[in-house]
């Protein structure tokens, strides 16, 4: 019930950045993972790497923060409407005589699958890795693009 009310919050989407409310909704979404969303198509999966998905009339954009990996450790593939990001983040060992005070950065494997909101042209998908951010641009297929309908009087 709480989720339903938050979904319909009238100011959602009006402010530019993510509001406290957006974050609360996301945290709740993770808590109640598995419950269907009322009008959305996906819930935060709680799987690394976290994804931000956006779209305009031409493309779907998927961005992800995966700092400190090399390109050969990252793999992106598209099958139908499914996007898969797999990889491994390795943190090279420092010299053996160092003493660690903090170790907050994590290494390990990851695999994330996402169902895309529309059909895309799989042949023209492009991926870029810059400043530790993976960005995948997926051009929408012709039938998924919005069409302007001429109205005859």
């Amino acid at each position: 019930m709480l989720i339903r009310r938050l979904e319909n919050w009238p100011f959602e989407g009006l402010s530019g950045g993510a509001s406290e409310l957006d974050r609360l909704r996301r945290d709740l979404g993770r808590l109640f993972n598995g419950l269907p969303r009322v009008n959305g198509w996906d819930t935060p999966a709680g799987v690394f790497p976290l994804l931000n998905v956006s779209q305009d009339s031409e493309n779907v954009y998927v961005r992800s923060e995966v700092p400190g990996i090399t390109l050969d450790q990252l793999d992106v593939s598209v099958t139908g409407r499914s996007l898969t990001v797999t990889g491994e983040r390795a943190i090279p060992d420092e010299q053996s005589n160092v003493r660690y005070h903090r170790k907050e950065r994590e290494a390990g494997k990851f695999r994330r699958q996402l169902t895309l909101p529309t059909d895309v042209d799989n042949e023209r998908v492009q991926a870029k890795y810059q400043h530790g951010i993976l960005m995948v641009v997926l051009p929408k297929s012709e039938k998924a693009k919005p069409k302007k309908i001429a109205i005859s009087g």
Binding site: A18, E65, P117
Partner: peptide
């Protein structure tokens, strides 16, 4: 993120 884009899912 350009101004034309609208979020479908924002996890971070």
């Amino acid at each position: 993120v350009t101004e034309k884009e609208e979020y479908v899912l924002q996890e971070y």
